[in-house]
Structure formats: C-alpha cells, structure tokens
C-alpha cells in the first residue's frame, strides 16, 4: 500500500486522484503504523514550513518519517514536503526542519520585479543526474510549480534536476538513496507528471541503479 502522509499541510485529494488515475489506491493517513508499514510513502504538502513542522510534531509523526527513511522505504517528497526534508528553512523567521537531506530552503529574491513570487506555472527541468523516477522523462520537460521558497541542498550529488527562475538555477528535484523529492507537483503536471508517479510505484531503491 502507498501511504500519503496527512499532516494538515494542504489538500491531498489531487495526489490521491493522480495515483488512482494510474491504477494505484492509496491511503491518506496520519496514523503512525499505517506509515511505518507502508510499501511506499508519499510526503506532500503546501503551506508554510513553520506550521508543517508544528503539525508533524503534534501528530507525533517525526519519528515515523525518520524511521521509514532509515528503513529504505521508497519515499517521495512533494513541494513543502520536499523543502522540510532539508535542515533549515528561511520561512517563518527560520525553522529547523527534518535534516534528512543536508541543506537549506531559501526564498526567491528576483531582481526583475516582473518575476513574481510565488512562482506559479509550468517550468522546465534540466536533468542533472539519471534516476529511476526520471525514466522516459525527457530533459527539458515541463512541470507545474507553485512556491515562494526553493530547496538549496548542500551537496550537488543530491540534485537530480535544476530549474531556472528568479535569476538562479535551483534544485527542482532531489534524490538520496531511497528518498526522491520534487519541488514541482507531479500530481498536477498532466501526463508527464503521471509518468513520474508511475516510475515511483515501480521504484526499488535497493536494486535499481540510481
């Protein structure tokens, strides 16, 4: 079973509908045993880092998240779920986050006032590193983004894709061991997004070559 972690960080219906579209039932849950016993874990989220960390703490989910990551369960972060995998976020006057991938979450500061924050819309990914989740996805494919902050991992080896916005090239997809994480929303990115989710449902981090 695929567990979609519900930690009160936004609406998870569209994630569930996307998996249903490719023939996979999921459970949207904040139950610790559902999460730790799942075959695969999706960690989505929209909203702010501060309240997300508070909810994770209040629901007692921090150990469960760390346990499935340590256990080697295929794990997919999306948007805010990706940002809080890093050590620290600039949002909400600075928040300590999960520290599963080394690095920080930073705010866009475009010099061009016509470049709006949040970035909302479809933008291209540059594939920096081959990965099973990117199989049959072409370099330069477009995905849907909605965000004011972006992940800045400390090690380039954790960067799977980059995307250009607001004067910079930021890490739009991260990967480390059994953890993959997108800043964009595969569940809202049409056919190409479904392909990435389909790749996730087949991914075996223990045997697939990254």
């Amino acid at each position: 079973m695929i567990a979609i972690v519900d930690y009160k960080a936004g609406n998870l219906t569209s994630v569930q509908l996307a998996f249903r579209a490719i023939g996979h039932e999921t459970v949207v849950t904040s139950d610790i045993s559902d999460i730790t016993s799942a075959d695969r874990v999706v960690f989505p989220g929209v909203g702010a880092a501060g309240s997300a960390m508070r909810h994770l703490t209040d629901l007692g989910l921090l150990p469960a998240i760390k346990a499935v990551v340590a256990h080697g369960t295929p794990f997919l972060g999306i948007c805010l779920g990706t940002q809080i995998l890093l050590d620290h976020s600039e949002e909400d006057n600075g928040v300590e986050t999960l520290g599963i991938i080394c690095g920080r979450t930073q705010k866009f500061t475009p010099s061009d006032p016509w470049q709006k924050v949040p970035q909302i819309g479809w933008n291209r990914i540059r594939i920096e590193k081959k990965h099973p989740l990117l199989e049959n996805i072409e370099d330069g494919s477009e995905f849907y983004f909605v965000h004011s902050y972006y992940p800045a991992p400390a090690a380039f080896e954790d960067v799977l894709c980059t995307t250009d916005y607001a004067d910079i090239s930021f890490a739009s997809m991260l990967g480390r061991g059994n953890v993959a994480a997108t800043q964009f929303h595969p569940e809202k990115s049409g056919r190409i997004g479904l392909r990435l989710l389909e790749n996730f449902t087949r991914w075996n981090p223990k045997t697939d070559l990254n």
Binding site: S14, L17, Y144, E187, K188, L194
Partner: peptide
C-alpha cells in the same frame, strides 16, 4: 471535473 483532469484546477 477534478476526477477527470490532472492539471491545476
């Protein structure tokens, strides 16, 4: 509608 499309709505 939401069930039928996989783009932002």
């Amino acid at each position: 509608i939401a069930k039928s499309i996989r783009i932002p709505f």
